[in-house]
Write a protein that binds this DNA or RNA. Sequence first.
DNA 1: GCCAACGTTGGC
DNA 2: GCCAACGTTGGC
Length: 151
Amino acid sequence: MRYWLFKTEPDEYSVEDLRREDVSPWEGIRNFQARKRLSSEVKPGDRVFIYHSSCKTPAVVGLAEVVSGPEPDPTQFDPASPYHDEKSNPARPRWVLVRVRFLETFSSPVTLKTIKSMPVFSDLELVTRPRLSIQQVPTGHAERILAMARA
DNA sequence: GCCAACGTTGGC
DNA sequence: GCCAACGTTGGC
């Protein structure tokens, strides 16, 4: 089982929004490293930790699964969208998305503060590359996070 | 609201 | 292709 961590601002889109929608396109990724991962590394069946950023208590709050391969992100073509990219066009899309399905909301969200306080997580991308929006989570770390989150 | 980190842009 | 300037992210 391969694990990822997707960041989202809960004021914009939260794990509870995903629970209501069940399946949702993960829109608005506009970073080349993240795009590379969505295009060639993230696969259907992979698990996705949902992380809430830019909020009172940044934390890993839930789990989802990837249910599609990469698709053009339609918001890039929409002039009314905050994710509009005038350099993109449908013949040559610049940005992709994958669809995710809600799996669970954690009973005990694992806060960034907790993760930073544990030396075992010092090599986690959430710590070493906090701005990257599509992050890898090695299996051992994923199991540690799940154990704390479901406690 | 501040500011450090870091990704992107664009001139050369 | 380098790198300075600039813009954005996101924790605090």
